[in-house]
Design a protein around this nucleic acid. Structure first.
Lengths: 195, 195, 195, 195
DNA sequence: GATGAATGAGAATTCATTCAT
DNA sequence: GATGAATGAATTCTCATTCAT
């Protein structure tokens, strides 16, 4: 936690990040203008530029926030002994991150590939982090289907938002179901277990 | 099949649709300008406006194309006898649609919720179609998790595109794996279980 | 009459003139596009260009129509013996012209000074015609006020359209009243005043 | 007086209003582009948009200015005792307003009915104001001709601009003559005259 | 006589950004 | 820390016009 999470509370900078993330996720990066962000905050546009050098800079800061959260998860995972138990725990923590700002971030990332591609943040960092998580979630010697399963199990929480459209159930219940499906989907260890 | 697919070949209108879909899927709707579409076709902007009344109109036509394909699937499914076999076949046909323009369309829809929301096409039609498919894929009396599974099984093909980033495998193999996972994920009939 | 009046009936060219005049008077010249004229006639734009070389050309033909009507009035007036009786009769005939297409033409001219100025038709003709009418309506040796009266007496019929907004009376009654006011307004002969 | 008139001096907003009114009156609303207004002011187009939300917004502000002037006249007239003397004074004040920006405004209104109709300012206000003036200028029990006379007497000052085209006289003299004609035209009180 | 397709110029408007204060 | 004013480039879209058929 620490820096990253705290960054989205209190300070002016943090207010901007929070509102910008909401708008970017709702309307898309390109369709959200600095004017709209400023108005949503009852600031002037120029005030935004006092805190952030550019619109892209806001995105960068947003990504960094998420990046550090996922980075912490990766670091923690690397410090543990590998195995099915760890995989289970990693998925749980991932899901925890994805709630709160995480879900919004994911929706944002999903809906704004272009900016993500063009932004020259340490975005490779995100890909590395994800690769690391994939490896942890994929048993040694896994086939293609299992590799895909690992990746999809991470995405399920994020898809649940879209998928639950029209379902009559509390957000809580939906996330619980998503969690369960995510676990099922994650590749099983082929380690000689008699089922 | 037929009309809808054929509509994306040959004629000027069709060329525009095809190029626009590619660009919209790649860069997002808002970030793709009419100028860019025109340049990609070596047309003038004004020529686009001769064929389509507006930028939104292009999107509308694109959606209608996909809509009719999914609509045909729903109609076909309704004309069959329900059951596990049908569910399997529906998933197969869905995946077939999603390849070709379908995948692009889905990436587009996923990445451009805002336009989709604002466009006043028979978009409700899409929601109805999806609802119909969900029902067919969901066994009677299914719980929340199974309802979610039905929805996610449809999305898996579309997610596979994202998920396979960085995997060293042919598109063919990836789609085959996605197909398999999609089938596994679809809710199973509770046949014969005493609840 | 003859040519000019007949020109607004029957033939395709005449249909175009009639519809164009209506639209120009309603929405103004610049705000009426060739597309709108074409649509109002269920033609294609290109068809308009078969009959008229340009948009300005339509206006020119319209002006010419009115020009010839007023020209005939001037010619007739010049062939009569001057005097108060003639002035009365001229006003009457002027008012007769102004009904029918005339009123529309006037509304058009009033509302589209710019085109009128820029159009290089024999528009000077119109000014000459009006000057001739002014002279006929103005008794010899009239002062500034009477010169203005002569001019305004011609305009009254045209203003009546605007002025009668909100009055509960038939168009017929309004025109009769306008006619009466116009006559009153016209400068009186200083008959018998010792200057 | 006061506020409204002063508003057209000094400030950037006021400069824009002044130049825009001149151009709108000269060339018509539709034929005057934001580029032209900007160039006439040596501004950029975008600068106009900083001060006014849209082209229509400029018109709206212009109308409001005139509206408040006429509104003041109506209010003043309502606070006086009705009668022939008041009618005379109202006409005088009306003519005073119409000079300065007023004449331009009137030429603009006359030549741009379409915009006026479409603009959703408190334009009904103008119609109400005019209705009020008509009532004041019209003696009780007046017939149709007198109702029309009241209306035309207000319009005469505005028509004088058009009507005096080609007259060799100073603007001052023309306005004086127009004033005189306007007064003559205004309906006379039928009080006790033996016809 | 008339059309479908296309064009180049220009319209209104919005945007990210800058900078003096 | 923050604002008001301004800009240059881009956007969507419309228009008068042309031309091969």
């Amino acid at each position: 936690m620490g820096g990253a999470t705290a960054a989205l509370q209190g300070t002016t900078k943090a207010q901007i990040q929070s509102v910008a993330l909401r708008l970017f996720a709702e309307r898309g990066y390109d369709s959200t203008s600095m004017r709209e962000i400023a108005e949503a905050l009852s600031f002037t546009k120029a005030a935004l530029y006092y805190h952030f050098a550019s619109k892209e800079d806001i995105v960068r800061s947003l990504i960094d926030t998420m990046l550090s959260q996922v980075g912490e998860l990766v670091d923690w995972a690397h410090s543990q002994t590998q195995g099915p138990g760890l995989r289970h725990e990693v998925l749980t923590r991932w899901i925890d991150i994805m709630q709160g700002q995480g879900l919004r971030m994911f929706r944002f990332i999903n809906a704004n590939h272009r900016v993500m591609r063009e932004i020259s943040t340490d975005k490779s960092g995100m890909e590395e982090h994800l690769r690391a998580l994939y490896e942890i979630l994929t048993p040694p010697g896994a086939g293609l289907a299992d590799q895909l399963r690992a990746r999809l199990s991470l995405m399920v929480v994020n898809m649940a938002g879209l998928a639950s459209n029209g379902l009559e159930a509390s957000e809580e219940d939906i996330l619980a179901a998503a969690r369960q499906i995510s676990m099922e989907l994650a590749p099983k260890d082929p380690t000689g277990d008699p089922a």
